[in-house]
Amino acid sequence: MNLESFQTRVLPVKNKLFRFALKFVGSEEEAKDVVQEVFIRVWNGREQMNEVQNWEAWCMRITRNLSLDRIRSINRKQTHPIEESFNVQHEALTPHESTEIHESMQRINQLIASLPEKQRQVIHLRDVEGYSYNEICEILELDMNQVKVNLFRARNAVREKLMKINAYGL
């Protein structure tokens, strides 16, 4: 692979890698460093890339491993939610409605952040990034069963809490 195809094929996945790294390390600067390092690894291992069936999943896996390394090295457990607020814009909404939506976003953010790490990773990969189960298996180095169980638990934990919020307005 030459530099040009690296630029056109590999670099565009940076946002996916960035979002995934962010799920682990929690800070944008750290996540950016991780993605930077991932690309250097990918470039250095570009000979292997022809043997890899799904190189995007391969990049995601490297991102995951490097993020975990980074967390270990800074000896910090990432439990706090991402601090950035979501910029929800909807033309048809009144200010009151948009505030309400903003609040529920924050609630969901906290809710997902409180999930166990594996569940959080699986739900991110599936529901945000739209990866297939096979790809998730490859990225997280888990078998299909574990991926499905984790996704099931994650979605149902979220659903239960949402239903509580709906019922009691919590």
Binding site: N15, R19, K32, I40, S104
Partner: peptide
């Protein structure tokens, strides 16, 4: 709200114009 949360999450991008250049410089 949950599904909108997923959508919003997907919009989050690596906001750094110099990033690509930095990567290219690093791998060259």
């Amino acid at each position: 709200a949950l599904f909108r949360y997923f959508e919003e999450n997907k919009k989050k991008t690596l906001n750094d114009v110099a990033f690509d250049a930095a990567v290219i410089q690093n791998v060259q």
